Amino acid sequence: MRDKSFESLNMVPFIDIMLVLLTIVLTTSSFIASGRIPVNLPKASASNDEARPAETIEIDAQGKLFHGGAEVDSATLRSQLAALPRDTPVLLRADRAVALQGFIDVADLLKQLGFAKVAVQTETGHS
């Protein structure tokens, strides 16, 4: 019996395998690089009343602080917030005329105390 000579190697199956492996590597590396899968979340025109924050901090146009409807200074606000559990949701409402520094001071206080569930209330629509 005579053996057929080995003249050429068919490269098409090897190229197919390499392209599949390249696709898998590129797909996996994009998930690893970003750390998460990008998702466009839906937008709602109205908020859910069940998810209302338990604590409300307000800043009026003159920069006065209010916690739970009562006027407080920054030291009192700090002591009141320090007594709360860190997973308590907080709603921060600031008048549009308030100085940015007043808003940043309250936001910084919340960050220093370790509150992670902080929402800023805004109005919908254009005015």
Rank of each mutant, 00 (worst) to 15 (best):
D95N: 09
R93N: 07
L100W: 00
T28I: 11
D73A: 07
R78S: 09
L77P: 04
Q101K: 14
P42Y: 08
A119Q: 09
M1P: 09
K117Q: 05
G114I: 09
A75C: 01
Q62W: 09
I104W: 06
R96A: 11
V120R: 03
Q101G: 10
P42C: 12
M1G: 15
A46D: 13
G69L: 03
E71H: 01
V90G: 02
A119N: 02
K43S: 15
L19T: 06
G125T: 08
V98C: 04
A94G: 00
D108A: 14
D87G: 01
V120Q: 00
G114P: 04
T56Y: 11
R52Y: 10
L19Q: 11
E55T: 09
A61I: 07
I57K: 07
V39E: 11
A83L: 09
A107I: 03
L92F: 05
A119P: 00
D60A: 06
A44F: 15
G102S: 00
Q121E: 14
I24Q: 07
I15E: 05
H126T: 15
L21E: 09
A99M: 07
I37P: 04
Q121L: 14
L92P: 00
T122E: 11
K43P: 09
G63N: 05
L77E: 02
P38N: 06
A70T: 11
E71I: 01
G35A: 05
V39T: 10
P53C: 03
P13D: 08
S47L: 14
K64H: 11
V90P: 02
K111I: 05
M11A: 12
A44Y: 15
I104D: 05
A33E: 09
E123K: 11
R96T: 14
Q121G: 14
A33I: 14
R36M: 08
V118D: 00
G35H: 06
V118A: 05
E123P: 04
A82I: 04
T27M: 14
I17R: 12
S127T: 14
D108K: 13
A46I: 14
L22G: 11
D95Q: 01
G125L: 08
A97W: 03
N48K: 13
Q112W: 04
P53Q: 07
D73M: 00
L22V: 14
E55H: 04
A99I: 02
R78V: 07
L84I: 01
D87C: 02
T27A: 13
L19P: 05
S45C: 12
D3P: 15
S45G: 15
V90T: 00
A75M: 10
A70C: 01
S30C: 07
P13F: 02
E58T: 07
R52N: 12
S79Q: 13
S5I: 12
Q62F: 13
A83K: 02
L65A: 04
Q101C: 01
A82R: 10
G63Q: 09
G69I: 03
Q112F: 10
A99C: 06
S34D: 12
V98Q: 03
E71M: 10
A107K: 07
A61C: 01
E71R: 13
A61K: 12
P85W: 03
K4S: 11
L91N: 07
L109N: 05
A94F: 08
P13V: 07
D87A: 01
D108T: 15
L26G: 11
V12R: 09
S127Q: 12
L109S: 05
S5Y: 11
I59D: 06
D87Q: 02
L84Y: 05
S47G: 15
D3L: 13
